[in-house]
Write a protein that binds this DNA or RNA. Structure first.
Lengths: 240, 240
DNA sequence: TGTACATCAGTGAACGCGCGTTCACTGATGTAC
DNA sequence: TGTACATCAGTGAACGCGCGTTCACTGATGTAC
């Protein structure tokens, strides 16, 4: 599936002018697609409209992108990566011992990204795009935020701060996930998965408009919710 | 906006053969639309395809439905009503004193409906339909499940079973909602809203495929999650 | 009960639009000797 | 450094498709006297 780069060793930076131009134009196409996505749903994403925005013939797009679906795949992967990176970067600035601070930082970063990019958010956490099947590549970037939250819970367990001993509720999660998460026992792991789920539940309700005329102070509500979810996941939250 | 019914008093059942046929065909159109929705996203809902499925000219649809958007509105309202009714009917069969039983019954009914009608679910809890603005009519049916859950929490409060005294966290919720919910204090109300949100978070993750290779035993996980959310909302859950 | 008129259901053609993708082709950019 | 050839970017026309909505029209169903 990778385009055959002649001999300059796939992974290195583009060398010739052609390769540079190619990389730049591909990026411009993806950017234009992202831009168009902001005004319209993923189903209405149009290669012709992108070509128009870039001032080129519609057929020229096919020099850079094999098909509309491939472009959508690219946008989905990029979105997962963007939100993952935002969360990781923000969380990394917090003192390691401050578990609640890290939890709040990570979840706030996800929310901020979602509010800033609602259509990209909808692309990955809204309705599945009809007729679109996620390739396996998107599974890794999709897990970044979840793994980040899990690492916080793992650190909490390592420092003995997790609220509940680890035993019950076995057999509910996928064995692969049980192995991939910090070994805190399945009850706590399930709590982490539930909290991770609810994070996106809260953000989706806000982004998709279900909190209209329901929640007035969104920032305060979000922090409040995240603290209650942190406690649900076993983190030591005093009051909240 | 209501079609002018000559003199037989808007609300009564259709009398003449014409009125009966009209009501039936309108229902058939809505049913065909719902049927088509199952194979395709809301953006691709096509009046022409519906006409084809019903064996009539595409222009004939306009005798029954003013526009494509009106039909979408109708589908959205119907979906909210259907899920609300499913939850209410199931919850009503449970002994009033069995608060956890009622909570589980209601939430399980929502999940069952969502799994049975994933595309209708996506219509109301997935990405907003682009270019579509919800009319005010959809706000009441949209609140049915939330009010049902609230009534359980209200009964719990009335029987003194709610876990936490009602005080902190004022000013976060919309005043109208605070007034509409049982007067258990804003902290508990916010907990109810959070649990209601998380219910849809869990269901969305399952319906939209985010639990693929993550949660193995979906039924057991859901019950487990609902019990933890019930406790989060203040219901007296022993273990879980 | 019968006739004259108004209302409505349904038709088929048309308007104007947009889409993804393919294809033969022209120039420009690279490569090898 | 210069020439001959291969590779690639970009074009414009075309294919075949589907869409929402409008409009003038034909028959059938109702209504009023």
């Amino acid at each position: 599936m990778l385009s055959k780069v002649p001999y300059c060793g796939g992974m290195s930076a583009p060398r010739t002018a052609r390769e540079r131009a190619r990389a730049e134009l591909t990026a411009e196409i993806v950017a234009a697609a992202r831009h168009q996505l902001a005004g319209v749903g993923p189903t209405d994403l149009s290669l012709r409209a992108i070509a128009r925005e870039l001032g080129m013939a519609s057929s020229a797009i096919y020099r850079y992108v094999p098909s509309r679906d491939a472009l959508l795949t690219r946008l989905i992967e990029d979105a997962y990566d963007a939100v993952g990176e935002a969360a990781e970067a923000t969380e990394a600035d917090v003192e390691r011992d401050d578990l609640i601070g890290r939890w709040l930082a990570a979840t706030r970063a996800v929310r901020a990204w979602a509010l800033a990019h609602p259509h990209e958010y909808a692309l990955i956490y809204g309705s599945p795009v009809p007729g679109y099947e996620a390739p396996t590549d998107t599974i890794d970037p999709a897990g970044r935020v979840g793994l980040l939250l899990a690492s916080i819970l793992g650190d909490a367990a390592a420092s003995g701060a997790l609220a509940r001993p680890a035993d019950e509720g076995a057999g509910v999660l996928d064995p692969g996930v049980v192995a991939a998460l910090p070994p805190v026992g399945e009850w706590l792991q399930a709590g982490g998965i539930l909290a991770w789920t609810c994070l996106y539940g809260v953000i989706s309700f806000e982004v998709f408009g279900h909190y209209e005329n329901v929640v007035a102070d969104r920032d305060a509500y979000f922090d409040h919710a995240m603290l209650r979810l942190a406690r649900l996941a076993g983190l030591p939250v005093f009051d909240g």
